[in-house]
């Protein structure tokens, strides 16, 4: 177990390295002079540009700059946003908890709904409930989350005036974003739970348990569910990561402060330090979530070994 975990941790290192290289290189790949872009809102003299270049150490070789980027990043310094003139890390961590809150809320909702629907559908395979709920699930996967968000606003804010349409903070502000974000994930979890339940229900030990005279419900709860949940855990992790990035659209629709909205605005504003910083944090969060999921998975199911 320890060996697996350390191997898994070790495997993360090159990934993180690659991520930082990619994020750092973005500044070199954009067409045009980043310094001019940074100063563009204000009248710029050649001296100002030269000063800014020196200030940012842009005349150093690529790897020196990259080294500095990583070093500063490790010290919590990801540069200064061009538009707000504030530290990038500060901007990110001001809003990041809200994004996590939204993603967690969406995941809780998606899991509850998805598991319930998936188990029910599997137990009543080929019934109308099964076919109907799987149709709904497929529709759920096919729906653009941002469009669903607008429809929710149309119904619950504009028509019934039940829920606030914009902003962050308290629970009423969280409901619609979490639903809009989580419904797609609920559909995926439902489909997966159903199929892994069906797999387990077909296996021998369930049949054996049934043959031994255990009643249906006990079989399901004791044996099938436990085993069926294992593959679903991976999906939870994967879905959580997807939900994190899904906030890109949802936060924009609901005007919620968060990392998703931050990254979109930074891209539209060509605020490159902020783009780099927020993309980096997004990617690292994703890596960490996947890492945790893999380890949890290994703990739950010791058969897994690192290949």
């Amino acid at each position: 177990m320890i060996r697996y975990i350390s191997a898994r941790l070790l495997a993360t290192v090159p990934v993180v390295f690659g991520v930082t290289i990619a994020v750092f290189s973005m500044l070199y790949l954009i067409p045009g002079d980043p310094v001019k872009m940074m100063l563009s809102e204000f009248q710029t003299s050649p001296e100002q540009i030269a000063r800014m270049r020196a200030q940012l150490h842009l005349n150093d070789p690529f790897f020196v700059q990259y080294g500095r980027f990583v070093w500063n990043g490790l010290h919590g310094n990801l540069g200064t946003s061009i538009r707000d003139n504030r530290p990038v890390t500060q901007e990110i961590f001001e809003v990041f908890p809200q994004t996590v809150q939204l993603a967690v809320a969406a995941l809780v909702l998606a899991s509850a709904l998805g598991l319930a629907l998936g188990i029910l559908a599997a137990l009543r395979q080929n019934s109308w409930l099964d076919i109907g709920s799987m149709m709904v699930a497929t529709l759920g996967i096919s729906m653009p989350s941002f469009w669903l968000a607008l429809i929710l606003i149309l119904i619950f804010s504009l028509h019934f005036e039940l829920l606030p349409a914009a902003g962050g903070g308290d629970l009423p502000h969280l409901i619609m974003p979490a639903v809009a974000l989580g419904l797609g994930a609920a559909a995926i979890i439902a489909r997966l739970t159903r199929s892994s339940m069906l797999d387990i229900l077909r296996t021998e030990f369930v049949t054996t348990a049934r043959a031994k005279g255990l009643r249906g419900r006990t079989v399901v709860l004791r044996h099938a569910l436990h085993n069926a949940l294992i593959p679903t855990i991976t999906i939870f992790g994967l879905q959580f990561a997807t939900l994190l990035t899904g906030t890109v659209f949802i936060e924009t629709v609901f005007g919620r402060p968060g990392l998703g909205r931050l990254v979109v605005e930074a891209i539209l504003n060509k605020d490159f330090p902020l783009v780099q910083g927020s993309v980096l944090i997004f990617a690292l969060a994703y890596v960490v979530v996947n890492l945790v999921v893999d380890i949890v998975y290994a703990v739950v199911d010791p058969r897994i070994r690192y290949q």
């Binding site: 606003i153 504009l158 005036e161 606030p164 349409a165 902003g167 609901f254 005007g255």
Partner: peptide, 18 residues
């Protein structure tokens, strides 16, 4: 002063009293 970029959302908030 609350920042609400979407015009439609802004209207909703003033109608609801938010």
């Amino acid at each position: 002063w609350k920042f609400i970029p979407e015009a439609g959302t802004r209207v909703t908030t003033v109608e609801s009293g938010e």
